[in-house]
Design a protein around this nucleic acid. Sequence first.
DNA 1: TCGTATAGTTTACATTAGTAATCTCAAAAT
DNA 2: ATTTTGAGATTACTAATGTAAACTATACGA
Lengths: 119, 119
Amino acid sequence: MKKQIQIADAELPIMKVLWEKDNLTSPEIFAGMDGNISTLKTLLQRLVAKGAVRATEINSRTFRYSPIITRDEYTNASCKSFMQKVFDGSAEKMLLNFVKEDKISRKDLQKLLDMIEEE
Amino acid sequence: MKKQIQIADAELPIMKVLWEKDNLTSPEIFAGMDGNISTLKTLLQRLVAKGAVRATEINSRTFRYSPIITRDEYTNASCKSFMQKVFDGSAEKMLLNFVKEDKISRKDLQKLLDMIEEE
DNA sequence: TCGTATAGTTTACATTAGTAATCTCAAAAT
DNA sequence: ATTTTGAGATTACTAATGTAAACTATACGA
């Protein structure tokens, strides 16, 4: 049972950058992101501390960062716990809600169906 | 802009009980729930404090509790922020992921489609 | 070579969340 | 009337989160 690493909301944007392109230096990560630079440093640090991101030393005192947790791992775990929490683990309940609330249209559903059929 | 009331994970089970049946006394709420009774009291109190639950006095020092936030309000807000956070606000991305991960089957989708067609 | 910019480290602090024990005081029981 | 019970209030404490300033020491530019 590998203990679940929790990625906090404020940390997620950093993960997203690294999922897009990894092996970046911290300035590369932070360029394009908004928020206070000190805060971003702290968040990156915490991600490294909790084992979500790996820091590889290049020069002494500078690193390149890469995600250890994959986007899929994160997404799957989040979806699962979200579905569990809000819809008592029922995907159908969730879907139904999305349809009722017009978050998804008939067309979207059809598109999805087609996509499945193709495989 | 009504400020978003956040319902914490540990508080949610109490809300779920009240969404099922409201105007309950605290012993009625807690019966059937598990967890330390003191903890449950704290959580109920916090829900009242943050305006998610209304306490109506019956005798002095005893109350009946009812949800102020509706299940739909909660569900919609949660879905929205979850989708925003994880799927950058795209319902399709999310659905697609659920399908890819086999959380939803072709059959489920078809059922939904049928359901929509009927209206 | 020396100064400086800055990547990374340390420290800080308020808030929320999870968990729970203890206290208070009226209502119910005897 | 007195005791007991228990609903609700108060207090507590740790961990996580969001936010950010200050410090340190090196790599690079002048």
